[in-house]
Structure formats: structure tokens, C-alpha cells
Simulated scan of single mutants.
Amino acid sequence: MAGKKVLIVYAHQELRSLNGSLKKVAEDELGKQGCIVTVSDLYAMDFEPRATRNDITASSSPGALSNPKLFNYGVEAYEAYKKRSLTSDIVDEQKKVQEADLVIFQFPLYWFSVPAILKGWMDRVLCQGFAFDFPEFYDSGFLKDKLALLSITTGSTAEMYTKTGVSGDFRYLLWPLQHGTLHFCGFKVLDPQISFAPEFASEEERKGMVVSWAQRLKNIWKEEPIPCTPPWYFGQ
């Protein structure tokens, strides 16, 4: 797979964490395959998670906004994308996504979702015009030629994330992220990589999580995307 381009969007504060180890082994393994790997380390970049009028570079100019009296972020970001007047941090990330064959999101689960800094990345980077439009969404989304994969660590054990567990089937949690965000933008979604409760695992078990991820990445380009339909999440 030499020449394939991979973007890792990394959202953890500590490189010595399991998330950091999973990111590093992905860089190493994919690099060995000849892939070109780019990492967006959101905390290290001090990435701005808030979607505001500051994202439109021309917003301070009279008449630059579509409706300066009533600010609508979605509308203004869409218009700014078409006019090439989004701020450089958004444009830089969009270029990385556009160039990637595979985007890996590496993060710890926060409140059944992504950390705020990663949610902000999604809010600001995956704007209308760049990632989707209407009716170009889901299978017709603009990122339809790309793969996406969530690599997640949890604070709870695997047993808690079952149909009979206190937190319910883990697939329920994946619906808004994999379907409502990634598939909506057209991504072909691969099975998630879930590393359960590393804080409560032994050192040997944590090493096993890293090894498991490295082994999977050896054949990642042969994997088939999941069927992005409700039955995959709720029908089994």
C-alpha cells in the first residue's frame, strides 16, 4: 500500500497514554507499509473547538456576511467555504482530509461521545460545501472515496457495553458518530477499534491492546466497510 495517505486525528492530552501508544504504533505500522502518515494532534495544536464568526476571515468587513444582523454559523461557513474565506486552521485540516485515503480518529470516549476538541474539529472542518451538500450526503457525500475508522479507549469494561450491560450495546453509541457524522459526509466506515478500560487493565493487557491494533493495521487495506444501515447498529 505504498503511497496511500493516512490522516490520524488525535485527541488526547498525554502522549504517554494508551491513546498515545495507539497513535504511535499506527504511525509506525502504516509508515512501514509505505503509507504517508499525517497527524493532527489537536491538543498540541491548541486547536480551536468553538464554531464562531471568527471562522470567517472576512466577517469584520461590512457586508461580508450573508446576514450580518442574525449570525447563522452553518450558512456563513458554507458561503465562506465557497468564497475561500474560512480561517487557515480550518482550511489546513480540510486539505489534510481531502488528501487522505483513510482518516483514523484516535480518542478516549467522553460521555458516550468524543472530547470537546474533537467535536469542535468535526463542527468546523466538516462544513457544508466541503464534506457534503444537499442532496449530496450519506452515500453521495463529498468524502465518499475515503475510509474512516474510530479508534476509541473507554473508561468502562467490555461487559458494561453489551445489550444486557448497564451501558447498553456499544454499537448504540456509534450511531451518531459513524452514521450521523462520518457516513453523512460520505465516508466508507470501517469497524471501530475499541480498547476497553485500559486504566483498569494490567500492563500486559494494555500491551496486548497495542499489539492487537498493530496486527489489524497490517491488513487494514483489505477490510470491507461496515454496512451503514440501522440494522448494523440496532438490529442484532
Rank of each mutant, 00 (worst) to 15 (best):
G74K: 11
D55T: 09
S202E: 04
T157Y: 08
F196R: 00
R171D: 10
S195N: 13
H183A: 09
F137P: 00
C228E: 15
C127L: 14
P108M: 05
Y43A: 01
V114A: 15
G180L: 02
K23I: 00
S66R: 11
W121G: 09
D41V: 09
Y10S: 05
D101V: 09
P108T: 11
E203F: 05
D133R: 09
P49L: 12
F200Q: 13
P62H: 09
K83A: 15
V9T: 03
K96H: 05
P198D: 05
T52Y: 06
L149H: 06
W121R: 12
K82H: 14
W221Y: 06
R216T: 02
Y73L: 14
V210Y: 08
I8T: 08
A51I: 10
H12A: 11
T87M: 02
K207Y: 05
A116M: 13
E76H: 07
Y110E: 07
Y233F: 15
K5E: 12
A158F: 09
P135Q: 04
L30Y: 00
C185D: 13
P225F: 10
D133G: 14
L173G: 08
M122N: 12
V25F: 04
F107Q: 02
P176M: 03
V9D: 01
A148W: 03
D101H: 13
V103H: 02
W213H: 14
S85Y: 00
R84W: 00
E29N: 03
F234Y: 15
K69I: 07
V39G: 05
L102W: 03
